[in-house]
């Protein structure tokens, strides 16, 4: 019988303690942050989507289009497009496309980049109704006003042109040689083919 009442009193006491706690919380100020009206400052290490780093000296990116990020990406969401522009050392980045819908924000691309060309942005207000909005061209995002033309180094251009000419010459020679060889070969083939057809006719 005493257990009965003890249980009852303990129960009521525990309920009262609960009420006391919630009452205290009721009287304290809410801790919420009204998101669209206020927003949090992201920590510097926050991993948003990746972005190209603007180099202050050249006021453009440092990407050399080596493709290490593309290779290291587990989800295959990066594709680096580049082309060779005469007079510029290395390849020139024409588009750095990040498919953010499949990105898992693992950081492998940033780690793999030996040139320090990409980093995580701090942007988190990304909302859209369309999937296509998440396929970013990071180059365009870096230069919203328009991608500047790569600086052409005249010396390099000259050198390159010479090289090219030389190469063209060599290629032309090679081509001629190849053509000759091909012609010979063709002739030989014709002969043998002719022989074959004759053989067929015979049978």
């Amino acid at each position: 019988m005493s257990g009965y009442f003890k249980y009852l009193f303990d129960g009521i006491k525990s309920l009262a303690i609960g009420l006391k706690i919630t009452n205290k919380e009721f009287l304290t100020k809410p801790i919420t942050l009204q998101y669209p009206h206020e927003s949090v400052k992201m920590t510097p290490r926050y991993r948003g989507h990746i972005e190209l780093i603007r180099n202050d000296e050249t006021s453009t990116h440092q990407c050399v289009s080596c493709g290490m990020c593309e290779k290291g990406c587990p989800s295959g969401c990066i594709s680096v497009k580049s082309k060779k522009v005469p007079g510029v050392k290395g390849k020139v980045l024409t588009a750095y496309i990040l498919n953010f819908t499949t990105c898992s924000l693992c950081g492998q691309c940033v780690e793999n980049c030996k040139f320090g060309a990409i980093r995580f942005s701090n942007e988190y207000n990304l909302a859209s109704r369309r999937k296509e909005d998440y396929i970013f061209n990071l180059l365009e995002r870096l230069h919203p006003e328009g991608v500047p033309e790569p600086k052409v180094d005249p010396e390099l251009l000259k050198k390159e042109q010479e090289k090219k000419e030389a190469a063209a010459k060599a290629a032309a020679e090679k081509k001629a040689a190849a053509a000759k060889a091909a012609a010979e070969k063709e002739a030989a083939e014709k002969e043998s083919a002719g022989g074959e057809s004759k053989a067929e006719e015979k049978s």
């Binding site: 290291g72 990406c73 587990p74 989800s75 898992s104 924000l105 693992c106 492998q108």
Partner: peptide
């Protein structure tokens, strides 16, 4: 199907 390094993001999921 992935290299050892590329398996990292799967662990978080």
């Amino acid at each position: 199907n992935r290299t050892w390094n590329k398996f990292w993001p799967n662990l978080g999921r």
